[in-house]
């Protein structure tokens, strides 16, 4: 049945029309944003904050202190992290008493589903960000799985200021997405999960994280 479906559909699409013409209008060339480094950081912060993300722009050597301060103010049952990433190594080295336990994501989801759905917080790196619309680029990998930024109620993301691009198109281009091949999953994330399905009332924290905290490292 399906083998025929393919051929039938394609042959119908290939049939030469008996009348009329289908034209493709010329694509206008639209100049993208061209902001300075500072402007990009500023715009990204502003756009993310509008979407209720909490953004901290901090010096690279100070961010761990800020993270610890943030975590100490919360009663969290754990912080999910990816031990095989550079970020994971930094966290392990810096961890101390009084902070929520670091919980490594090292087993396949089939073995740790329960804990993934009950842990309060997760921390991930990012591959970059988009200033124009305000969005982080996440590039999950073997070391840093997909659910880390989804199941915990609090998602903390760490971003290098150098990796903030003007536009989505620029990020694809400059990071060579095509050349290196697309990974299993790429995500653009612009805030905590939200809905406006009841009377268009904007509400945050639906099925994904209720909070998104972004550290932009200068």
């Amino acid at each position: 049945m399906t083998a025929n479906a393919r051929e039938n559909i394609l042959s119908r699409l290939r049939a030469i029309p008996t009348h009329g013409r289908y034209t493709v209008p010329e694509a206008p060339v639209i100049a993208g944003l061209a902001l300075s480094r500072e402007e990009r950081i500023d715009r990204l912060r502003r756009m993310l904050e509008v979407m209720h993300a909490e953004v901290q722009v901090v010096a690279a050597r100070e961010w761990l202190g800020e993270l610890k301060t943030l975590l100490r103010t919360r009663a969290l049952n754990g912080l999910l992290y990816a031990p095989a990433t550079p970020l994971g190594a930094v966290l392990e080295a810096a961890w101390e008493e009084g902070l929520p336990p670091l919980v490594p994501y090292v087993e396949p989801v089939e073995q740790c589903r329960e804990s993934l759905f009950t842990i309060d917080a997760g921390i991930t790196s990012t591959r970059g960000a988009i200033a124009e619309t305000g969005a982080l680029i996440l590039w999950p990998s073997v070391a840093e799985p997909r659910l880390m930024s989804l199941t915990p109620g609090l998602h903390i993301a760490v971003l290098e200021a150098e990796a903030i691009f003007n536009t989505f198109a620029e990020a694809i281009d400059r990071q060579g997405w095509l050349e290196q091949g697309m990974p299993t999953n790429v995500l653009l994330i612009s805030g905590p999960s939200k809905t406006a399905d009841i009377e268009l009332t904007l509400t945050f924290g639906v099925h994904g994280p209720k909070e998104l905290v972004v550290f932009i490292l200068q």
Binding site: V142, P145, R146, N185
Partner: peptide, 18 residues
């Protein structure tokens, strides 16, 4: 932009956990 833009290119690859 929406909160999530989700680009899926393959099923779970070897070594991936989810």
């Amino acid at each position: 932009i929406t909160t999530y833009f989700n680009m899926i290119t393959s099923p779970r690859r070897s070594g991936e956990l989810d």
